[in-house]
């Protein structure tokens, strides 16, 4: 939604709690704990939130969106059936599973994280200082190339190394590891004369999102 108008002022709540209600924390934790089953990845979860129709998306709070998307992932991955969610009771005749994430492993997960860089040799297509253009691509599926940058010219500011490509990873079509760069776009290139002359917006973009200028 970068660059959209009409969203109103930013509301900064003083002394905000981490979670506004206990259920928000439970949604947060349930999503992380269930991810340990390895049935989806971070890009899948982001895409599932994006599949919420815009009108509903804007009406739902952050954790409500997370909850709705989570239910969908549970069903799609066959971990839970809709009937079970509806009734709140496990289907009969299924052996009880063993949770992969224990409290000890949860603490390790928090401390170690889940790196998305990949230690593989992939040649970068672009060099630091090179002028590039963000491709004008409009995929139906998941992408991390924001609309406001598509077709715009920028400069490679830093090569971050090799990372998993979300566009394929979100849809279980492979990690497709490739270089990610910090690309600097002049604010005026993105927004025209209304922007301050020397302001800039930096985006981290994958090789596949860029073309030579």
């Amino acid at each position: 939604m970068g660059g959209m108008h009409g969203m109103g002022p930013v509301q900064n709540e003083k002394n905000e709690p981490v979670f506004h209600a206990p259920w928000e924390g439970r949604v947060f934790a349930l999503r992380r704990a269930m991810a340990a089953w390895g049935k989806w990845n971070i890009d899948t979860t982001r895409h599932e939130v994006e599949l919420i129709p815009p009108a509903e998306y804007f009406e739902l709070s952050y954790y409500a969106r997370q909850f709705v998307a989570f239910l969908e992932m549970l069903v799609k991955s066959n971990l839970v059936t809709r009937g079970e969610i509806e009734s709140g009771i496990p289907a009969k005749g299924q052996p009880k599973a063993t949770p992969p994430l224990t409290a000890e492993k949860a603490v390790i997960l928090v401390a170690k994280g889940v790196p998305t860089s990949r230690d593989v040799k992939v040649s970068p297509r672009f060099k630091v200082g090179e002028r590039v253009r963000a491709r004008n691509i409009n995929p139906v599926g998941h992408t991390r190339l924001p609309r406001y940058a598509r077709g715009k010219f920028g400069t490679i500011e830093r090569d971050h190394g090799v990372f998993v490509l979300p566009d394929t990873n979100a849809h279980f079509r492979g990690e497709n590891p490739q270089h990610v760069y910090a690309v600097r776009f002049a604010a005026r290139e993105l927004w025209g004369e209304q922007a301050a002359p020397r302001d800039a917006v930096n985006l981290d973009l994958w090789d596949d999102y860029l073309e030579h200028a």
């Binding site: 439970r26 947060f28 934790a29 349930l30 992380r32 704990a33 269930m34 089953w37 971990l79 839970v80 079970e84 496990p90 299924q94 009880k96 599973a97 063993t98 949770p99 994430l101 224990t102 409290a103 492993k105 949860a106 603490v107 997960l109 928090v110």
Partner: peptide, 12 residues
Amino acid sequence: KGLVDRAALDAL
């Protein structure tokens, strides 16, 4: 269903 461990949720 044995899919999550409440202690893990609490720890997170």
